[in-house]
Amino acid sequence: MKRAVSAMVLTGLGLSATMAGAGEKVAMPDPAASWNTLWHHVLLDLFIIGIIFLAAGLYWVWKYRATRPNQIGEGPKLSKIAAISFAVVPSFLFMADDFFLAAKGWTVWNEYRNVPRNAMEVKVTGSMWSWNFEYENGVTTSFVVDSKEGEGLVVPLGKPVVLRMTSTDVVHSFFLPDYRVKEDLMPGRVTYLWFNPSKTGETLATCAEFCGNRHSFMWTKVKVVPQAEFDVWVAKQKQGAGA
């Protein structure tokens, strides 16, 4: 909170762009956590702007009610200098805030796009209507929308996962609300996203691009398990495939 406020002040001074990159580097990038932090900053920023404008607007609406019939407003006639200042000064303030937000957003975005080198890769294919996952070691799982059957995506705790995604038919989108990320799947292209499974348990991935009458049902389980358990799971899958 304090950081956000001081950032706001700097924004006002137009120093924002230089400041934005200066956060300390965390050892283990966690885009979802950075997202949450940034979200609070953005909310605060917008809240302040909104309150200033709204307070002024509502106060004037109340203060300048006409008191007698046929009254005429006393609104100022701006001199040339005043008119230009009222355009230029706010423009720079707004721009400063824009660049501040842009720089902040860009920093976190870089985290989103720079896949850690040790990431585990999973190929994801979306179709009407199932999700199919293929691991590096050849293990495949799926989740079938109609029957709600299948393992879905299973990943080990604490190891970054990068999804290389494509679609066999129409546009879908892999949306992981808990990890604050989504990216579309399209036929003819491969897109990617990565996330850092930071908590064991089951979460949800759901289709966020309109794809027809089962669009609302097109979700899949994403299970995060400790590494050991994951290894066992992989072994079992391989066996299952072999048997």
């Binding site: 004037w60 300048y64 008191t67 005429i72 423009s91 707004f94 721009m95 660049f99 842009a102």
Partner: peptide, 23 residues
């Protein structure tokens, strides 16, 4: 994000029209 600049100028002008008015 830069669109907030022209929209912001229009907003100021809209709100400012009330200033010292006889509403």
């Amino acid at each position: 994000l830069m669109i907030s600049v022209p929209v912001g100028l229009m907003t100021i002008s809209l709100f400012g029209t009330l200033y010292k008015g006889a509403i």
